[in-house]
Design a protein around this nucleic acid. Structure first.
Lengths: 259, 259
DNA sequence: AAAAATAATTGGTCATACCATTTATGAATT
DNA sequence: AATTCATAAATGGTATGACCAATTATTTTT
């Protein structure tokens, strides 16, 4: 293994050869030695180049594949993923999503991030951003009459992600994208629940409109406030939905317990 | 391999034996068959139980170790991690951290989350929370005179994490914990930079104190405002530091280019 | 009872072989 | 010359068996 001494910001030397190899490969990907879509040398050749056994090299590659950095096909080769980080693999977040108790926390967090997005978007959005925002809003409104919650959820996510893009903070955008991915199903469920209550939908429209207006006006305080109002409304609805779901789950547990 | 048909929300069957094994082990961890801290059966035994080869079993375990779900020690065994998700493994976030251009975004995002924490902490903190907050604040202040930026960064993180705990939103807490882990080094650098400017440190103290007071008073608006003021201050400092670093990096690149 | 030595267990790495899939190459056909 | 088909080579996936290094358990000695 190559000597890693004298590297700036040296991390603790990994205990495993496979970790060391993975780090070197990740560095090569990050710095562009291997570009997205590019095919890596064959496993046997990489093992030889790194001076390790093929099983050890494979362990390193497997970890990178599992994290979405690499894609491999039996007989076809190993490639740098063209779309890095498509899956949020943090194990605790995955566990949280699967626990209804924390779903409310997740939704609250998401909407708080939206408030943040609104604030920065109001500060920083360009003319092009605003044009796109208007377009996304129109597309969202166009889904209201329909009874297709999945389509509406998609348009809703697009609208909020466009706000996040207009905030010009890539970390915020990245986290928002991941959270919306995780929440996709519960957003659909929430919208499905809202389908039944027209006055709630009217309010939803007004809130989205007010949010857009605040951003277009370039008023961060107003944008934050509008997002906050939206947040309170959504949380109330979700609390109600959550209570209902908890009752349903409890009933279902009794049904399954009988088996 | 066991039949996965008839499972609700069935995922696409993984192409690899190691992925299938990993999924089964994860399910066993999630449902409590293997509890945090518990030792897993030896690799040779697990391989036998799953009916796969030891290298394949190891590939599965390695992925779980890489994700923080398992911990293994040569000669000592493999254990379910007591603290799940200690490492934020999202590949894009890792790449972002390693790019100075996005560091500002990351810091901005973190401080925005702190504003959020402050808001909810003011709303929800219990008497016990407030007691702990006061204690953490005192410990932080105790580090000010010292010229140990690492110790101060640790106390600073502890203070802010205690606020996040008092917010009673586990997703927010989780993300804050991860971000602070990623930012550890740059926080240390920032504090090191602040060591030199006493008036900045006085201001930092006042901001932390005002933040604490707002939370103890149970005033979310005030807490948000205080956090916001703190944010603006820190961002200004970091912009300055970042500009300095960028110049340093550019100089360093020229030095390395000569080699 | 405590310490030291030894043995067993466990994870880490490796070499080699073989299987399954994909890709490249060359021959045959149109 | 272009296309198709058969074959070989390359590649990833899995397995077996061996050995090394670290840890833990057991036995022996003090």
């Amino acid at each position: 293994m190559t000597n890693k001494e004298n590297m700036p910001y040296t991390t603790v030397r990994p205990r495993r050869i496979s970790d060391a190899v993975m780090e070197q490969l990740e560095t090569m990907v990050a710095e562009g030695t291997f570009k997205p879509g590019q095919k890596l040398p064959a496993e046997r050749k990489l093992a030889q180049q790194f001076g390790v056994s093929r099983p050890s090299l494979r362990e390193a590659l497997q970890k990178m594949v599992a994290r979405g950095l690499l894609v491999s096909r039996q007989g076809g080769g190993t490639y740098v993923s063209s779309e890095i980080g498509s899956a949020f693999s943090d194990p605790l977040l995955i566990l949280l999503v699967n626990h209804p108790e924390f779903h409310y926390d997740l939704l609250e967090f998401r909407h708080a991030l939206e408030g943040l997005s609104a604030h920065y978007a109001a500060l920083r959005s360009t003319a092009a951003d605003k044009e796109l925002l208007q377009q996304r809003f129109d597309e969202l409104v166009a889904t209201y009459p329909a009874t297709d919650p999945e389509k509406e959820a998609e348009a809703d996510a697009a609208f909020h992600l466009t706000i996040a893009e207009a905030a010009h903070n890539v970390v915020l955008l990245h986290v928002m994208r991941r959270l919306l991915g995780l929440l996709e199903r519960s957003i659909v469920d929430n919208l499905r629940s809202l389908v039944e209550r027209k006055e709630s939908r009217d309010l939803l429209y007004e809130q989205h409109k007010a949010l857009l207006d605040a951003i277009l006006a370039g008023d961060p305080e107003w944008a934050s406030q509008m997002s906050h109002d939206h947040l309170v409304f959504v949380e109330d609805g979700l609390l109600e939905l959550s209570k209902r779901e908890t009752r349903v789950r409890r009933a279902l547990r009794r049904v399954y317990a009988v088996r």
